[in-house]
Design a protein around this nucleic acid. Sequence first.
DNA 1: TAGATTGTTAATCGATTAACAATC
DNA 2: TAGATTGTTAATCGATTAACAATC
Lengths: 223, 223
Amino acid sequence: MATDNRGIPIPTIKRFPSYLRLLKGYRDEGMEMVSATMLADELGLKPIQVRKDISCTGIEGKPKVGFTVVKLIDAIIHTLGWDNATDAVLIGAGHLGSALARYEGFETYGLKIVAAFDIDQHKWGAKLGEVPVYPLTQLKQYLEENRVNIGVIAVPAVQAQEVAEKLVECGILAIWNFAPKDLKLPMRVVVQRTDLATSFAVLSAKVKRKMVKEDLLEEDDEW
Amino acid sequence: MATDNRGIPIPTIKRFPSYLRLLKGYRDEGMEMVSATMLADELGLKPIQVRKDISCTGIEGKPKVGFTVVKLIDAIIHTLGWDNATDAVLIGAGHLGSALARYEGFETYGLKIVAAFDIDQHKWGAKLGEVPVYPLTQLKQYLEENRVNIGVIAVPAVQAQEVAEKLVECGILAIWNFAPKDLKLPMRVVVQRTDLATSFAVLSAKVKRKMVKEDLLEEDDEW
DNA sequence: TAGATTGTTAATCGATTAACAATC
DNA sequence: TAGATTGTTAATCGATTAACAATC
């Protein structure tokens, strides 16, 4: 059905890559079947949650036996849309951009960074791994000549909004934003943020919570 | 109260850094008061949600006027625990590690990377920005001599578990894991993952959803 | 067979949103 | 004052978890 993906909860989507990594390991070890119980145990989740997640892929298991490892792998990849490779341009060839361009994991997700752009002329002509770096002024032309759907932003915060708008003008459909800046863009554009600040905020909160809990325990001890 | 932070929802925590960035901008422009309505509008949130989030900081506003910008800034920083600087060690001085070590935003969060460690002897003695790189074998000694609470993991997936266990052995309280690997660690250790795969999975799912929606619209057109 | 595991339906839990009185 | 905005209480929404029948 076309509506297949419509209703898959975001939390489930977020767990899929973890399942996928684990399943690929099992496949490489020659394992053929796996139970939700085993996956849950390995990832620190509850079996019921794993079953619910798996049911979103449309795969059915066999009671007492579990699920076929390779079927599950294919189904998750398909559900995520990772079976169709997508080209992306990278804006910003600094340290972060450079690390992203060289990251080999992307091909696993069907993401291919085909070109990088930067305002700094010292970077022009260089290659970040396999990815050539062009002047930012050539972005528009490049996107006219090459069908690219995704833009990856790895520029300083102050430039992020401007770059994003340029990408949208050039027909980019989705933006993966690594700059610490909240972008204001038309609703039709898909924006995904990967923000160190947000991630660290959660870490900080968890640490603080733990501290508080330990403090409380100490207080209890005194009574 | 000591239990202050206990119950702040994770989604709220995740929005705090965005509020913070925006508020700092307002402060720098000399703005003294700000309404939840304005913040919501700027970030694409609903005013009520912003008010709920702000109430978690304990700050009270004035009807018709709003909230004091600098009070709000201080309260969010305090709620996140970012007013106490924390030292961290970085494991892995590759491209990603290098980018993290040089990232200037961390000081905003009260995070200070004091040393990096790597197995590759070619990296020893180098500096990533201000951060010196040592042999991984010196990690244990370093942590005995310096009180560090947070470990940042930026090594390849296959080494992540081993490195994490070593950090835990050495008394690290919290781990920020950038390796694409789910770590199995004692409950008492706080683990925060920043996983490109997870983030890209969400992007992929949103794109796919949009595609489906557009397909459905087209189908509708034919009827 | 017996028992582990699946899949479904219902209950619970937590966050978002709505409604509205209080207030500057 | 009038009206915008706050803060609280209740309703809604969505995800997780529990319960349990089906099944290999």
